[in-house]
Design a protein around this nucleic acid. Sequence first.
DNA 1: CTGAAAGCGCTAACAA
DNA 2: TTGTTAGCGCTTTCAG
Lengths: 340, 340
Amino acid sequence: MSRKRKGTSSISIKDVAQLAGVSIATVSRVINKVPSVKEENRKKVFEAIQRLKFRPSVSAQRLASGKSNVIALVIPRYEGIFYSFYALELIRGVGTICDALKLDLLLHLADSHSILDFSGVGGVIFADIIGNRHQVEDVLERKIPSIVINNYVEDLKISCIAIDNFKGAQLAVEYLISLGHRRIAHITGDLITQAAVQRLEGYKATLKNKGIALDDNYIVKTDYSRGQAREATEKLLSLQLPPTAIFVASDSMALEVMAVAIEKGFKIPSDLSIVGFDDNPSGLYAPVALTTVRQPLIKMGEEAVKYLDLIMKGKQPTIKKTLLSPELVIRESCSQIKVS
Amino acid sequence: MSRKRKGTSSISIKDVAQLAGVSIATVSRVINKVPSVKEENRKKVFEAIQRLKFRPSVSAQRLASGKSNVIALVIPRYEGIFYSFYALELIRGVGTICDALKLDLLLHLADSHSILDFSGVGGVIFADIIGNRHQVEDVLERKIPSIVINNYVEDLKISCIAIDNFKGAQLAVEYLISLGHRRIAHITGDLITQAAVQRLEGYKATLKNKGIALDDNYIVKTDYSRGQAREATEKLLSLQLPPTAIFVASDSMALEVMAVAIEKGFKIPSDLSIVGFDDNPSGLYAPVALTTVRQPLIKMGEEAVKYLDLIMKGKQPTIKKTLLSPELVIRESCSQIKVS
DNA sequence: CTGAAAGCGCTAACAA
DNA sequence: TTGTTAGCGCTTTCAG
């Protein structure tokens, strides 16, 4: 008995087997719900497990089976992301469904140069790709099931689920136009995100389509923060010919826009119409309930997890690029333009 | 060769050893930075690792060594938590430092009845304890290094790091009193959280200390949501004798309070002083910059991780209960009371 | 329906 | 300084 290990104090499948009077294989079968176990034995094993408070070692399970039920959620750690409703909502969606599906959620708040260790991981969800394409490529190369969300990736062989931000912007702007607005401004989000870029493009394209000339003064770029939203609004409203409507790339910024406008004595919506983006519940309680574009973030997270789960279980191996449709939520912050 | 396994396609330490012309033990030593390896061999091994793109299997490492560098962050999934700046800030703090210390972060958004699987986990951080004491007790029983944050637990043998919410409330209320206010209301957070309870207690105690009678009409309970903050404010401001100051349990609610007050024609701060809690950056860009109580959330998360890391490495085994001090951040939303 | 036994990929004595 | 080898706790054939 010379080369014995430091005995791990924790109880193992062996102890359970012994107490239950069966072999470890049977215990394993019970744990894995293999149907072929006699009811009597199953019961014995269950009791032994209870009595010993046995918990199977995930590491051992993984090692032996080669399977893992860990999903990694990679969120790029750029500043702007934490201004947003978006991140928390996403984590909430993904986290909740992981809990339900008994998947473990590994959270990586990653730098673009973080080295991510995916060895124990069964699947990876990339929340957007911002300066970390190489990480995606790495995972792809290692054939780890993966999916990108909130970013429609054309040029990579990977599944993705994204919001149709272009369409979202279009919905917002068309609505504004339908109310008679022509001087429509746009406060963008951080243009390192695809979402912000596409919203801007949607805004531009829709104006063009409707024969409204673009005016660069009406486009102000921000990093999604409330501070920059405030500055943007001040700039916009002090223009010689201020816009009659502003389409804002996030609700949290839109709330700021509204606050600034009210401070300056504008009446919402009669003097200024505002459309946000997100359907952040805060918008409901704004001085004037915010009209906004709802994007199904939680759903996006859920879909991603479910899809990954399928791939990890060996089904659904094809690459699928999904675009989720946003939806205009009309509340009180927009009105027909005043006759001039 | 009958009983062979389905060969895992992934390369193992064996392949590296072969290519490098050394034994697997040497490869293992290189991986684990054991100093006693000849420089020449170390180099060979490194090259082989590079060429093969070898990544050690975490599961195997864990199983063989009995060590784990996974930290689980357990966040109770009650509705209110997602209204808050708090959750995201915490995740950010913990997530960032985990990335830095090369620890894996397992995120559990747990129901109180979720069964948590901590088998592969080296340490656990409980973010508050809300209906999940049994989970804490379970971890304790299994001797897994653990710590509770945002909740000062007296009656459990576990380390904790919490904010001194009582003191925070005291700072806020004393400041208000020093400005001459006596009709000071409090909009609470969700009283299933210790933080909200302690802020309420701090509020009450401070008033009492200063010889100001408590008035139940001045205390309105909420769930931290903006909607309830709005209702609370409306109720408070329509009182026959409305408060001249409101201490609000979170910044996000305080912003709502301010918005409602402005809508109703109150001037901030001359007609109504407002103090929030959190130091949410949004408060900076409010119509009137919000005076608030700063709580070091990110620091709390960081400290927790560092501490756990120490325990996991076998140092610092004692139980330590830490209380972090909040700090009053005076901005524009409070003023001397008007002479009546 | 069950048990024996061969790994899964790695670590850590121990011997050399 | 290095190689050999016995496990770590579990899954999964294969043979009853």
